[in-house]
Write a protein that binds this DNA or RNA. Sequence first.
RNA 1: CGCGGGGUGGAGCAGCCCGGUAGCUCGCGAGGCUCAUAACCUCGAGGUCGGAGGUUCAAAUCCUCCCCCCGCAACCA
Length: 509
Amino acid sequence: MPRQYIHTAIDFPNAAPHMGHVMEKVLADVMARWFRLRGDEVRLHVGADENGIKIQQTAEALGMTPQELVDRNSPLFEQLFRRLNISFDTFIRTSDPKRHWPTVVALWNRLKEGGFLEKRTYAGLYCTGCERFVTEKDLVDGLCPDHRQRPEAVKEENWFFLLSRKQDAMKKLLHPKTGTYKMVPSWRGNEVLSFLEGGLEDVSFSRSKETLSWGVPVPDEPDQVMYVWCDNLTSYLSSLGFFTDHEMREWWDDAEITDVIGKDIARFHAINWPAMLQCAGVKTPERLLIHGFITSDGQKMSKTLGNVVVPSDVLDRYGVDPLRFYLSHEIPVGNDGDFSWKRFGELYDAKLRNQLGNLLNRALVLLKKEGGEMKLGAAAQAFSPDSWGRYVKAMNDFDYSVAIQEAFSVVAASNQGFNDAAVWTIADKATKIETLSAFAEILRHVALMLLPFMPETAQRMSRQLNVPYVDQMLDRSFVLTDEMKDWGSQKEWKRVGEPEILFPPVECK
RNA sequence: CGCGGGGUGGAGCAGCCCGGUAGCUCGCGAGGCUCAUAACCUCGAGGUCGGAGGUUCAAAUCCUCCCCCCGCAACCA
């Protein structure tokens, strides 16, 4: 049984979670759920990137300690992910000295022992107002735009990771044809590859404690704190207890590893991370799934524009599955996407209420009127067996929007078939029951297709249909068998349950 | 010539890799049905597929050049 280790980027909790965080987690969760359904063993990891200068600064501005800030914000992420039914196994917080730091320190030591770390003088411009290094291009007329002062030229001793040595190795690893680390979708990888062609430079791996105090201390160097790379990325290992006495190596060494991350940090995950792993003698991941960004009504979300969409507002209004549906249906994997309340409402009505909910309702109500007994006859199945083939291929190819649209094209075709057959006018009771049963059977298949995307909805549909496996379908061990995908395979399924409204109308905002 | 993405009926998008009736959602017009959450179905109006060349029997789809929009351009996650 293949083993799958999926991890998302860990999130930066200097503010409350936004729609972009949600998109990434839903994407990873759809993948995790699909892998489980097809029979793989799955571990899904998420977390919070709590260290760094920005957290330090934000905390200061709010008059709290960094620890207080992350203790306040990180749970917001975790709670949101739970509410979204993200089936994660671990939530790592990088300020956790017990779960996270030992792995980080061990990795650091390995890199150092391998001769991949080197102490150098880092020269840069330091703005005392920002309390951080700034670059030339940040400056306006040579001054810090925020503090209107000239940054000082500062030199400090830092550790560097010798990434430049790994250029050829990374080219080989990421080679579109022969490399073992695949970037999905491939066009997202192009940017990374061309960047790689430009040549790699060594990366700064630590800061002086005066510059950065909130982070993982460098072993044996009291005045140095690790800079983001060694700390943040390593959470993917620390969640498995790597390099400790409770490490779960099988989830790395004997697993297919997928990173789910945004286009902005693709480069670091595609290059820096596998380079670090190679240098530490650890296997590199198999797949990098790169998603785009989400805009709000076509514009970049920004507090100044006041167009930030708060995920919990959507959840309060529409519930979990409609949001999961919207993101999966509207945004092809890798593409940028847009969130708009208008579009959300339209899609909710058109697809979820009018097409899906209505089909389920009209079929069940009529069947109930005939007594609720199921009987699948020789009546032509209105469900093309190719649908499963197309669906499975799309799911395996990470074309999730294509897959969910396949499910909805089955629904649309069924509504049409329902009218064409004028089911409600069929006089012969046996024929009527057989015809309606066929629609119930179609909906059983549709619910299974929707299961990775809208788990609760899939179960509610199946509950109304009263299919035999309804109570197991949200279990992690629930596997989609070939038998389940066969027409009329549920011999124990004798009668349907009570019809209910699947998606109620939601008032316009 | 820095890199990548995009430019498709009123709006938002898919199709482009593997050329061959231009598809989806919403909106609009007409009709059908009345089982169903005033939902469902059918038909219709509306597009020189950014522009110009080229390849081809045939191009939204391949090639070349140009224009416009967005992101990135390295330590900022």
